[in-house]
Computed example of a mutant assay.
Amino acid sequence: MSAEEEKYDGLLLAIAEKHKDGISEFLNTIASFLRRKTDFFTGARQDQWESLLMTVFQKQYDLAMKINTSIKNERIDERADDKKKVAHASKVEIGRQEDIPIDEISEQINEQEEGSEKDEIGKLKPNAGNGCTFDNYSWTQTLQEVEIKIPIKNSSSLRAKDVSVIIGKSSLLVGLKGQEPILNGTLCAEIKQEDSVWVLQDNKTILITLEKVNKMNWWDRLVTTDLPISTRKINPEPSKLSDLDGETRSLVEKMMYDQRQKELGLPTSEDKQKMEILEKFKSQHPEMDFSKCKFS
């Protein structure tokens, strides 16, 4: 089934949902539209528009029968293949059934969940500020900005002129003048240079605030050479979300939800809405076959 053929499915399904009396009422609406808004009936002889209708519906009927036959053949092949596998398994010495490890069965049942967990291997747990803490520096984040703290050890009388900070659009270099940089790399995402600042705090800590360009995504690392954190485990403070206006907050919460659903291989909010419409229509029209209906 081509994308061109499916592009009106959502619209047609929404229209069909409003026809409580079934397919005949739906087809009557289409015929009524052709009568009122076009010359479909009056612009040709009766035998011509009847022939056109029969040609269109015959084509769709032939396709439906072809697909239905193909599905039946696939099921027959699958059953035959299953029988072969069972017959083969019966010939293999596998020992007593009670010797099969329970954890192997659990592993098969939870295959999808474990698949998503594999993606988390090697990722660090976010710190309390939804960032990460390293030996030389730490960083935290909100959806709007990133804050970096770099403590300078054994320097109680450090002055701003001793510090070198270069903030680029997508890069950051921090260190003491005349020494190797403490932090030097490509940022996870672009920032607004004009709104990003740094200060020397208590003569011993360099504090940098970076303004994000994209305020709808969480960073999974500060610079590209860092190990990533698990953005699935980020928990934004409710007070931060409450600072947003209602419309922006709803959008942010929806995007966060959809991002996590995609990472888990689960339906997004839009996918769920489409499925709810389909399920409602299916319940209203049990006489119709929706086995091949899907949304891309």
Rank of each mutant, 00 (worst) to 15 (best):
I166A: 14
K149Y: 12
Q144W: 00
D135H: 12
P181S: 08
V146Y: 03
Q201K: 15
I166H: 09
L176W: 08
K192A: 11
D195I: 03
I148N: 02
D162G: 01
Y137D: 08
E180H: 11
I152P: 07
L183Y: 04
T133N: 03
G168L: 07
T186G: 08
W198T: 07
K161L: 11
C132G: 10
P151V: 07
P181W: 04
K149W: 11
G129T: 11
E194A: 12
E180W: 05
P181M: 11
S171H: 05
K169N: 15
I150C: 05
V197Y: 14
S171V: 04
L172K: 04
N136P: 01
D195R: 15
Q141M: 02
T140D: 00
I191Q: 00
F134N: 09
I167L: 10
S138R: 13
I191Y: 00
D195C: 10
S138L: 11
G131A: 04
S171P: 05
K192Y: 03
S170A: 15
Q144I: 00
W139I: 01
K153Y: 07
V146K: 05
N184Q: 12
I166W: 07
P151Y: 04
K177A: 09
F134P: 11
C188M: 04
E147R: 14
K169P: 08
N136Q: 14
I166L: 13
A160F: 09
P151Q: 06
L172A: 07
P181I: 02
I182E: 03
P181N: 08
E194D: 14
L172V: 04
L173C: 10
S171R: 05
N154F: 10
G185C: 02
V197D: 10
L187W: 01
P181E: 06
L172I: 13
S155R: 15
G175C: 06
K149T: 14
E145N: 12
K192H: 07
S170R: 15
I191D: 03
Q179W: 05
N184R: 01
S164V: 13
E190R: 07
I166K: 13
I150Q: 05
V165C: 09
W139R: 00
E190P: 03
L143A: 03
Q193H: 13
E147F: 02
N136R: 14
N130Q: 03
